[in-house]
Design a protein around this nucleic acid. Structure first.
Lengths: 192, 192
DNA sequence: CAGGGTTGGCTAACGCCATTAGCTTTTAGC
DNA sequence: GCTAAAAGCTAATGGCGTTAGCCAACCCTG
């Protein structure tokens, strides 16, 4: 019998896909093993524990999201950049609700934790959106938290099916992006 | 031997408290039973299953949050109301992260589901914040979703310890409330 | 205040899950 | 080809949710 040829990355990727399909809570070692054509205990040759697996998925998410944001923000600034970042985050979360769910509630061990680094890179991309708005440097962290809270909240609620009247969700999204764009424009240094 | 004198409400309340203390994931039937001075299977005399328990906690949250919002919004309008609603939601979620966590991912069965009704009442309170801003009725749903996404996102991230530099979180919160207030003020019917 | 039905507790047991131990087989390098 | 590491396996443990079935405490009627 030939081997399955697994490695930590393959296991992580399969787990992420399974999470998106059946929900993070249903990603059991047995189900994951079955999908990989292997028995559950064999997975422990590649990952330490389920907590370790979640951590690896979260790292994957941070990398994927960071890549997607950098890609989307290339050559854009101001309102274009804002809309692109918002759409990128929304699309990613709605498309990958299971893997995204791993990113809430994880203990970052230290500043050299790969997860902390990848997360910081995501935040850096969001911060890049703010450049063209020329926000007062002292307010930058607040504006960044606004974007993060809003995008995270909107996409999370949408992914959970929390909005009624599905057809209007796109309109709400556009309206909110416009709302933030106008608000940030008012806060340019020159306007105070 | 005397009886413990439990009922569904007492079990739900104890579970909500335990969730806040140890995290929703650690609310096991055994731990909950122990806190109530009872053995795990006895809990099934009061609740149907763990899913049923989560549902009951979520309903409790919707009622508590609705009550708190109505209380806080009494006699306030405009910016005051916005700030009060934001603070109420934030305080509640940060103080009760475990029980609040039950409100994500729950299937509402129909429009007469008590959970749907209680949830709608929470949204009604948020909608009351918008009255004084005299938003164009067609935009009301979008503004409501803005508030909901933002408050939910901010408090969720804060409760999960997602913001660095803890001391500045209060400042960010105030800044964001101010940002939304100004943005909504611009959208009064008269201003378009 | 007697007794019978209902209610709320208990123990025992099942199946599923994560995880560990220890064995066997494949595979890569010399 | 030989050997050692890596990667799979089966078996077993302990914890969890849940069900079945038993017994004691309570309420309520007479």
């Amino acid at each position: 019998m030939p081997r399955a040829g697994l490695d930590p990355a393959a296991v992580t990727l399969a787990a992420a896909g399974l999470a998106d399909e059946v929900g993070l809570a249903n990603v059991t070692m047995g189900a994951l093993a079955e999908r990989l054509g292997v028995r559950a205990p064999s997975l422990y040759k590649h990952i330490d524990s389920q907590a370790d697996l979640n951590r690896r998925i979260a790292l994957l998410v941070a990398e994927e999201l960071g890549d997607a944001l950098r890609e989307a923000l290339q050559g854009r600034s101001g309102r274009d950049a804002l809309a692109a970042a918002a759409r990128t985050m929304r699309d990613y979360i709605v498309k990958h609700p299971g893997r995204y769910a791993t990113t809430i509630r994880l203990g970052v061990t230290g500043p050299d934790d790969p997860l902390a680094i990848a997360g910081a890179r995501v935040l850096d991309s969001l911060a890049a959106v703010l450049i063209a708005y020329r926000i007062d440097p002292a307010d930058k962290i607040h504006a960044l938290r606004l974007l993060r809270s809003l995008f995270h909240g909107f996409a999370t609620i949408e992914a959970a099916g929390g909005f009624e009247m599905n057809t209007e969700v796109d309109d709400s999204f556009d309206w909110i992006v416009d709302f933030v764009d106008r608000g940030l424009s008012l806060r340019r240094e020159s306007s105070e």
